[in-house]
Design a protein around this nucleic acid. Sequence first.
RNA 1: GACUCCGUAGCUCAGCUGGAUAGAGCGCUCGCCUUCUAAGCGAGUGGUCGCAGGUUCAAAUCCUGCCGGGGUCACCA
Length: 602
Amino acid sequence: MASLAKELSAAAGAAFEAMGLEARLGEVRRSDKPELADFQCNGAMAAAKAAGRSPREIAGEIAAALKAHALVLSAEVAGPGFINLRVSDAALSARAEAVRRDAMAGGEKAAAPERITLDFGGPNVAKPMHVGHLRSAVIGDTLQRLFRFLGDEVVSDTHLGDWGLQMGHLITELQDEQPSLIYFDSGFTGPYPAESPVTMDDLARLYPQASNKAKANEARNERSQKAVAEMQAGRAGFRALLTHFINVSVASLKQDYAFLNVSFDLWKGESDVDDLIPEVIERYKAKGLAVESGGAWIVPLAREGEHIPVEKNGEITYKNAMPPILLINSRGGTGYHTTDLATILDRVEHMGPAPDRIVYVVDQRQAQHFVQVFRAAEKLDLMPEDRLEHIGFGTVNGTDGKPFKTREGGVLRLADLNSMALEEAFRKIDAAGKLPEDMSAEERADVAHKVAVAALRFSDLMNTRITNYVFDLDRFTSFEGKTGPYLLYAAVRVKSVLRKAAEAGHQPGAVAVSEDAERALVLQLDGFGAALLGAREKRMPHILCEHLYSLAQAFSAFYGALPIASEADAAKRASRLALADAVRYQLETGLDLLGITVPERM
RNA sequence: GACUCCGUAGCUCAGCUGGAUAGAGCGCUCGCCUUCUAAGCGAGUGGUCGCAGGUUCAAAUCCUGCCGGGGUCACCA
């Protein structure tokens, strides 16, 4: 059975069509005014002008048609032409039962599923992930779960940054510290040691050292640039180091991701498409798309009306500029424009069936970069621009509204953020003192971890993706308000009620709603499918967050208003237990899509 | 300068393919645990939807201009 909203929309749409109007006018949604109606349809007002009739008159006819529908208890015209609908208790009862038995907990598959390559995470080798990486990881992973749930075929790839200047910094800095390492002996032909000469801590130390030196000293920077170019050109010792750097880094990255329940199908990186770069460059040159400019090779991308040169004080600047992509820099090296294009080539031509779409979950500040890459990809007929999609997101700010920093002013590492959240979860759990006495240390630690992850993931996902948000750990780990821990608590409480009932021999049975709190709960359950599809269509996980939060609230209100397991009347008790079970099922299903798991007790 | 995102309650934010009295959380004020987890629930408080025009029966929502803030603008990614 489809959702009530969908059934009613179809019925209203048919009624509009019967009047010679568009079916889409029949869209029915939850009422803004629960005291007036369960659902409403506003199409009559929109239709009035085209139909040349008064909106109330049209609404009257639609309402009359809807009254005949089996689900509808009443259909009334209000105000300028709103159609207010009430559905019957029987319809709500049947819907609740359907949700409880449904394979998707009341959700529905996407109408046009796609094969999607999802590129997110994007950590850099040797640079520990920082708080900025949280968003890509959490949003990307949630989209991955959501897309799969709705029927899309997803291949996720973390796309390591392992090909750029940072590798040159690491190589040269390591050379300064340990010049005798075999990797720097250009006469050595291998094989190189299997053991890495550096640890993750070494890398985390070497990179900022080199980066700071390079910023202050142009010659030092040149050395790094040169080293990258040599590595990219295939110098064996440098490539062996690269492999060590990647392996050491990936092991560390996996720990941070695992804490957050984030996973990837592929751990490919920029360096994996090394062998495709010459081909990409050749294709651009062969098509006459690449031009030489100042010792570099670029692909101009500006379109009509863009990129108008303006000369000022002898310097040329561009009005409305869409800069070209840099295919090869003046030192012969390639940057992330070129590796991104080679990666598209790889994904489209070398990795099994070509994806229908490639989706990148990357900081909004990269928006122009992706416009450039997408245009360039289309020019080469790799993939049409409209099948390439950048899902941008805002930055994570501190409570001062500026980009999040540690107390010392440095960038906060993701690993440290994870530990802070875990500590805070332990603190809040201790302060509440609500965990059962018999809970083992392991279970307690598991609960703390789940609370920490719920806090981090939910607080990130509940914000509109595109805007910046203020990170406030204390607020996010709170059990009060619109937080992950509140949702966890609500879900655990449903489970607890169901468990206690089962222990007492009470099972869920046929649903028969009658009370307001029961009706409100089922109406909320009914909105799951629309929330999922909306979240997928807009790539906005906060739509799902809102739904789940409202569901948890509706359950809490229901729980407060009516006895469930303790209801004396057996039929009512069985019905309410079934309702509770439907809520548990949908809540757990939805939270799982957010990467949040619910403990048995807390 | 160009492009882009944002400006809604004291704070943090939803709502923006136009529709009824603009919502939520926090905060603050009340009330509710001898029954299922009170980490909860109920009630109240609080808004010139940045400003000015325009389109419309109807604008937080669409259009134009302005003001304020963030971001980006070819050799780091």
